[in-house]
Simulated assay, not measured.
Amino acid sequence: MAFSLTASLVIYNNDPGTLANTITSFLHSTLPGKLIICDNSEQPTRLDLMQDPRCHCIFNSQNVGFGAAHNIAMKQILEEAKYHVILNPDVMFDAGALEKLYDYMERNPDIGLLLPRVSDFKGEPKFLCKRLPAPLDLLIRRFGSKFMQAIFEKRLMHYEMRDKDYSRPFEAPYLSGCFMFFRVDALKKVGLFDERFFMYMEDVDLSRRVHRHFKTVYYPEVHIRHGHARESYRFNRLLFAHIRSAIRYFNKWGWFFDAERSEVNRHL
């Protein structure tokens, strides 16, 4: 294999400064690596860092979606490395982070997917490990009033796995798509992102499929920072995209009768 790891980054009219921080974070790694940047913007993004020989840019000329764009990258490079990283264009991490994740995966061959500890840029922790969602979980989190969320606080805390000790590693069947460190053999076994999800829920779906065959683990010894824009709370078109993806997810896996969801969540 040509590289220790590869990574893919999907961009769409992103802030150049934030994007530069993400690319720089990857390029700080001493591991032999390659970064595929899939540009869904209407016009090609110009950034000097993208000229680095470790970067390869693909201009799609249209917004093909988050999962579909990552798939374009992964189909090109899955034979080139043992591990692959999904990056959001608003994450940052210190030098050495990828090396620590790489070493941990090397020591634990039963792990198919890792998520490090995540905070926002102010240092506030983000709880991005979750049990498999039921429709009510998503409905309350997205549309519930503060009063309703207070009533269902215990349920939401359970869904976000707040009952777990976030200072220690643990398994979670749903790990956030902001940063996904995959074993390539896991992707070869379960497949790539389901392109029926244009945006949102594709990370739940893929995490779940990997969890069927491998451990999917939260690993707090490595820390990343994530902007976490929550754009579906600010733009109606993204809210509708989120709703469409949620409907497709539950159509695929089951709305109120999902035996696998019940078993996985019970086991955790």
Rank of each mutant, 00 (worst) to 15 (best):
A150S: 14
R54N: 03
R208D: 15
V264T: 00
P89N: 08
L87H: 02
T216W: 01
P173W: 07
R244N: 13
D90F: 05
K75V: 08
V217M: 11
E153Q: 13
S176F: 10
R212Y: 14
Q43D: 15
A186T: 05
A134Q: 12
L27C: 02
E202V: 05
C55W: 03
A186D: 01
Q43I: 12
V10K: 04
A97H: 01
S41R: 06
N40F: 02
E106R: 11
A97S: 00
H70M: 10
N21W: 12
R46I: 11
E124W: 14
Q149S: 05
A69E: 06
M1K: 07
V190T: 02
G227A: 12
T24D: 10
T22L: 04
L78P: 02
V64S: 09
Y102H: 11
A241K: 06
R208A: 04
T6P: 02
Y12V: 11
R196Y: 09
M105L: 08
P133C: 05
K154M: 11
C178V: 13
E80A: 15
G65D: 04
R237D: 15
G144L: 03
M180Y: 03
A68K: 10
K82W: 13
R261F: 02
C55F: 00
R183D: 03
F179E: 07
A69N: 03
F26P: 03
P169C: 09
E171N: 14
E260V: 05
N88Y: 06
D165T: 00
K130E: 13
I77G: 02
S176G: 12
L268K: 07
F181I: 10
H28D: 14
N14I: 00
C55P: 04
S29F: 04
H267K: 14
L98Q: 03
L238F: 09
M50Y: 07
V204C: 10
K34F: 07
S8G: 08
E202A: 00
M74I: 14
F121W: 08
T18S: 14
E106T: 00
